[in-house]
Amino acid sequence: MAESPGDVTRLLQAWGNGDQEALNKLLPHIYDELRRLAGSQLRREGSPHTLQPTALVHEAYLRLAGQDRTRWQNRAHFLGVAAQAMRRILIDHARAGHAAKRGGDVVKVALDDVEAGQSSGETDLDLVALDAALTRLAAIDPQKSRIVELRFFGGLSVDEVAEVLNLSPRTVARQWQMARAWLYGEIAPGP
């Protein structure tokens, strides 16, 4: 853990109050913490491991914000930042896999339901491509991109996303629907 829980809490608060600088200070700590949590799983080779962002994010939260019951706060903000960090971890890892240039482990996403007709039943999608598509989406519609980031990389439920972005769950569900369709068009094979 990079900073004491109190500082993380303060930074979360400051960020919640619109201080963007606080986010910059916060991100490395959360990134570090998540990275450490994810590290043992990511480093292992040879056998598949499921990364469960939700579990990681919650565990990181407990560690960062402290377990003292009266101390935690701004969970919504935390989850928002954590999802972003999660995205970075997974993308960095995917890049590291590419950079290794020896067919080392690569982070992929299961797309088995996407192309039902495909013989293998499962296609692997490089997260780097998704990341790039998500970045393009952000240029057009930042909110949708954020929703995908929170749901997919952060593992948050629709309700949690709604809490983080201060939207109604209905709005989140609607936006998610379109964002997903658009991203599918950007990434999936075929016309």
């Binding site: 080779e45 040879g46 056998s47 997919f152």
Partner: peptide, 11 residues
């Protein structure tokens, strides 16, 4: 699509 969390698998 995107409903499942990312998987880390050996490549």
């Amino acid at each position: 699509f995107l409903e499942r969390p990312p998987l880390a698998v050996a490549g």
